[in-house]
Design a protein around this nucleic acid. Structure first.
Lengths: 340, 340
DNA sequence: ACCGTGAGAGAAAGCGCTTTCTGATGGCAG
DNA sequence: CTGCCATCAGAAAGCGCTTTCTCTCACGGT
């Protein structure tokens, strides 16, 4: 009873339409897919029948036979992070324009989970975007063939030759350092992200490079993190140090620090300058507004889609893309205080 | 050549496994699905074969025959909004625990898009969550049967009898008003959201109700909005008015206002008190930290999943759920200034 | 020795489509 | 009038599975 008796339009199959229109399944299929080899009158009758039954082909069945799902997966390490949200947004809006759907999976920074999630998600769709994957190089490389077509965001393709889109954290950090240096800062603290993350290593290499070229600068690494709380927790260490500027791993950390500093009566930027990284939408609305290295994160998402789209169409992987961040100078950075 | 010659594990079908193990498809299927009516030795052989081919059943084919996709869709009006992100996060993590996948669609506040998106997404999965749908009541009601099983977030089921989960904006606003009243504020401004949104109407009704009960209070409606910029833009009007407190539609608006006020040298809360709504993660890190009505948004997402899960298992729709927000008093609200 | 029984494996149907293959029809050249 | 080709519709195969149905075989009871 279930199927036939259901009054709704759901569960309608192509045979229902064929029957109503008095033609064969093949003909209905041909009409629905715009084949030209169907008599105009017949086609019209089929269309009417389909309309009256509110019929649309089952995407599932189509996917099975066509071998494509019109869906791509995105795996992010943390959906709560504005950076990944922005990426997801750019990606999903771009994909939607091509009538593709997006399956999203949050690995919660869990390495184990990440691999399983990726493989499982990938099987349900045509391609996958891995956003800042946490897994080690060898593991990733081994996984890549199984995931293809795949696009990597914010991750060096290193040994693997995967299509990647990323922000140039090295350049961003370098610019930030130059910005602070230009303001007279010589003692600078860095609040690092998670050691394993590639984006952290890039920042560190920029720092050591800069330090090498500027013997008069001293960069100290404090206890850092990736979220508000971590920045908040770093306030005491920052206040205790004689650093005149702090490079936070990202805007979130910077905001946490800003907030904690303000509680302690430490003035920004008079007493200490703070910089973030990413330029999340909130950055310009902190007090004072945050100086940060701006990463066009939605654009990264869009580009990731473009690449995946190319891959899906059998095109060779395009050159890897890297966005050089732009330092946005706002109120949180200023001249180094005269007396250290 | 394509299939056979591919060295990877992809494209392996159940017949490959059957062949390798020297059994029939049926047997492989039974083993993979844990049927007990298979001889232990055979089962072992099948498992080995599957392992050696790195075989897992095609989710697509399974979905087609099983009639379920292990996937649910979520439609949100704006992926950039922290509120919907939080919801999505709670929902996706809960769904993941049940091994369900999440298809996400952003309607970009576009009414037209919303319906199409919902219908299309729904066809690819087993159920759908509509988050604060913008569409008018009649349209929604008409759509509901086609979408079922469906859960609504932050939307009155009104005429339709759909399972819903929501925050009690009326109560939240009421508490906020009482909070400000208790601090001595008598002239209060409200920065409304979009007029069509149910959550805005709820706030308004709380306001007019409160005003009725407190003739000594005067609540003025200014030009509002839903994002930073809107709050930022409202600063002049706020500064020009003689209101001593501002109820922003949400935390985003409050933050924009906070930032603009600070630029103008208006002190918060000494000159004017500001309250937000939602308690997004950023709210506690503004300067000053934002007093707001806290909505357990991730929990809303989780609950939405629970409901959908129940529906998927054929259980009757549970009672509708409403979370009463909690006013979190932080630094942005204080006693009304003595001189108006 | 015979039949009923039940366990366990394979054959086959079917999920809802697309597409190739096959067949019928009609027009037109020879 | 015959034969050939083009045109278009239907039959059927097949996408990769699950599950029902069917069959075989060994076992035990009488």
């Amino acid at each position: 009873m279930a199927r036939r008796s259901h009054p709704s339009s759901r569960g309608r199959t192509i045979s229902d339409v064929a029957e109503l229109a008095g033609v064969s399944l093949s003909t209905v299929s041909r009409v629905m897919n715009g084949s030209t080899t169907v008599d105009a009158a017949l086609a019209e009758r089929v269309r009417e029948a389909a309309l009256s039954l509110n019929y649309t082909a089952s995407p599932l069945a189509r996917s099975l036979v066509l071998g494509k799902t019109q869906t791509v997966a995105v795996v992010v390490p943390d959906l709560a992070n504005p950076v990944f949200q922005g990426m997801l947004r750019g990606l999903s809006s771009a994909a939607a324009r091509q009538n593709y759907h997006v399956l999203v999976a949050d690995s919660f920074e869990n390495l184990e989970e990440e691999r399983v999630l990726a493989v499982e998600a990938r099987r349900r769709c045509d391609g996958i975007v891995l956003c800042a994957p946490r897994m080690p190089d060898e593991e990733l490389t081994a996984l890549l063939p199984e995931l293809a077509p795949v696009v990597l965001i914010n991750r060096d393709p290193s040994p693997a030759k995967a299509s990647t889109v990323s922000a140039d954290y090295h350049s961003g950090m370098q610019q930030l350092l130059e910005h602070l240096y230009g303001l007279g800062h010589r003692r600078i603290a860095y609040l690092p992200g998670s050691a394993a993350a590639q984006s952290n290593r890039k920042r560190l290499s920029a720092i050591s490079e800069f330090a090498d070229g500027h013997p008069d600068v001293m960069v100290t690494e404090l206890q850092g993190g990736v979220g508000f709380e971590d920045g908040h927790a770093a306030a005491d260490a920052v206040a205790a140090s004689d650093d005149t500027a702090v490079l936070a791993f990202n805007d979130l950390v910077a905001m946490g620090l800003l907030s904690a500093l303000s509680e302690r009566g430490v003035r920004v930027p008079e007493d200490v300058s703070i910089t973030g990284f990413d330029d999340i939408p909130f950055a310009r609305y902190t007090t004072p507004p945050l100086t940060t290295a701006s990463v066009p994160i939605e654009e990264l998402g869009r580009q990731a889609w473009e690449r995946l789209w190319a891959l899906l169409n059998g095109q060779a992987p395009a050159y890897n893309l890297s966005f050089g961040p732009l330092v946005i100078t706002r109120g949180s950075s200023g001249p180094a205080p005269a007396a250290a």
